[in-house]
Amino acid sequence: MDYARSSSFPTDPRPGIQPPMPVKIVVAGGFGVGKTTAVGAVSDIAPLTTEAVMTSEGVGLDEPRSGSGKSTTTVAMDFGSVTLDHTLKLYLFGTPGQSRFGFMWDDLVQGALGALVVVDSDRLVDCHGAVDYFEQCGLPFAVGVNAFFGQINYSLDQIRWALTVGDDVPVFAFDARNRISVRDALLVVLDRALDNALGRQAIPG
């Protein structure tokens, strides 16, 4: 794969189209909690999703919320993007918070501004893997409780208690289907990221 470029090369390099600077936020959570929905709600491209009918590997292990009507389940990673301006493009990567997808997580988290952990109040345990991981690697995150059918079955204080996340971690309800609601959820993550970044700056040296 050694292609020497001579001065008589037939085509000129393209005039510099500067690609936008990519930034990313990770959207994590258990199966069927609405990660893909949330990504799709704000993405300005149709989300490129690897969502497929659950493989036999997942049967019996990953039961989507009963009654959610969801017939497919994310088995890999789905993502979308929001072009914020011509120099800045936000990528949203949805990932199942499962240890068997751990091989992807380092790449997901590298350079990420923060993470939104999407939880279903009936299946809190599904997000433990994601919360543990983000706490460990120090990625700023916020917990968004997806309000299925417009309601959540426990108070946010109960959910915070059950998740045992720090007081500084925002826990709030949102609607993964609603563009503005998802945008606001991402803003909560970014506020947290900003606090974190300013805190780092404040530490001398």
Partner: peptide
């Protein structure tokens, strides 16, 4: 991008708010 750059985070916040 440096994910710990407050200016960058502010740009993303402003961009998202405009959505």
């Amino acid at each position: 991008s440096d994910p710990h750059d407050p200016d960058l985070i502010m740009r993303v916040i402003r961009g998202l708010r405009a959505l």
